[in-house]
Write a protein that binds this DNA or RNA. Structure first.
Lengths: 221, 221
DNA sequence: CTGCCTGCTCTTGTATACAAGTAGACTTGT
DNA sequence: ACAAGTCTACTTGTATACAAGAGCAGGCAG
């Protein structure tokens, strides 16, 4: 339900391409987008390009100036903190709901993912993927499509900050430990505890990121 | 930050008008929107109309069919439950943050709103407004613009269901009592308690709404 | 030298024309 | 009568042309 099936319209293609460029910082924060130039570059007319731009604006992946220009939003460490907190609230909710709805098969699936993650904990590049996999499973069990949808949007935003929030081995170990406790709480069917653990887990990730940022300098050097 | 200052462009006007019609159910759930007809009715060309439509789609106030048609989403009691839960998670977060940041003046402002609400508790039409006023103040104190933004979007969605979730005097009294406890927790500076109370408060509202719906029949009769 | 005014260029916003694909109705054959 | 195929009307998606407004440069006056 979150991602609508991509109809192969040009607007969808340029939307995906622009989104990719924004999230990879290929389009730099603060950079302005000029419709005719971008349309020429993407070899498409202004109409579908505008459609893609407006969609990105409504997702806050682009920003409209009062004067009328459109630009890539600046990176801001206050924002990343906010995003982590919203993620914490949503994942907490989903952990609670998963707790209430999980079947034996669901628990088994969670533990299988956990085992996989434990085996791969040393690989930094997979760390994010692993956390996402576990969370995706929990989200599926929770079955709140709106929570899932909003969570996806927030996660997209956070991708722009990925390069600034390097994960350390310590952090990955801690995350794995918290995931174990979380799955245990879900298995035990304790909603309040599962919710609290999920919340604290993401808040811990927030604090780790903020420390990493202040150590390595601000996000916009 | 949530609502961008309306630039007086035609697309913004039709956006506001369509949104109004959708939220008031003037555009009926399930009804399809034909661009030429709607453009003629609103006396504007298809281009700005399409812009407004796409924006509403990305806010889930309109729905795009795989085939290409656009229609007003059906009402669904599963969805309203989901929306309440997301609201609960977000308001819980904001209550927690408000707790951490509130100044003496903030507490005073909250208590003033509380007193006002207590005086007006018997007026059903203001009930929603009062709850919103208190929440808006808390959101302001919490100062998480993303939480605020997402909360606004979810609240918009819920407006479509307003007519089905009639509030009773009992319900309003209960809400006021919970608001008192919430403000007390914020004043006491107890984040966990404030968060828990805010969460339970909205969940209680969810349950009351679901009961009202099952009593009065399904949302789509 | 500085401040203001004027004109130009380039931007965005809107309208319209065109193309392609789809749903539905009608006809035709069995 | 029913099923299948085709044609038509209308839909959405895209391109382009046009208008209005903002920003900027350059010149002119004080």
């Amino acid at each position: 339900m979150p991602e609508q099936i991509a109809r192969n319209t040009g607007a969808h293609v340029v939307y995906a391409e622009l989104k990719r460029r924004i999230l990879t910082l290929e389009l730099k924060p603060g950079e302005r987008i000029y419709e005719p130039a971008m349309a020429a570059e993407l070899q498409i007319s202004r109409t579908p390009l505008r459609e893609a731009i407006r969609r990105l604006i409504s997702e806050s992946l682009l920003e409209q100036q009062p004067t009328g220009g459109v630009l890539v939003p600046d990176l801001d460490e206050v924002v990343i903190s906010e995003l982590y907190e919203v993620r914490a609230a949503l994942e907490s909710l989903m952990a609670r709901n998963a707790c209430l709805k999980a079947t034996a098969a669901d628990i088994e699936a969670l533990e299988r993912i956990l085992a996989r993650n434990a085996a791969l904990v040393e690989f930094a590049d997979d760390a994010m993927q692993q956390g996402m996999a576990l969370h995706a499973q929990i989200a599926g069990i929770a079955g709140n499509s709106w929570a899932h949808r909003v969570h996806s949007q927030v996660s997209s935003q956070m991708e722009r900050y990925r390069h600034f929030t390097n994960s350390t081995q310590d952090r990955r170990d801690a995350a794995l430990a918290q995931h174990r406790i979380l799955v245990a709480a879900v298995a035990a069917g304790n909603p309040d505890e599962a919710a609290a653990i999920a919340f604290e887990h993401v808040i811990a990730a927030r604090d780790a990121s903020l420390r990493a940022i202040t150590r390595n300098g601000p996000v916009t050097p």
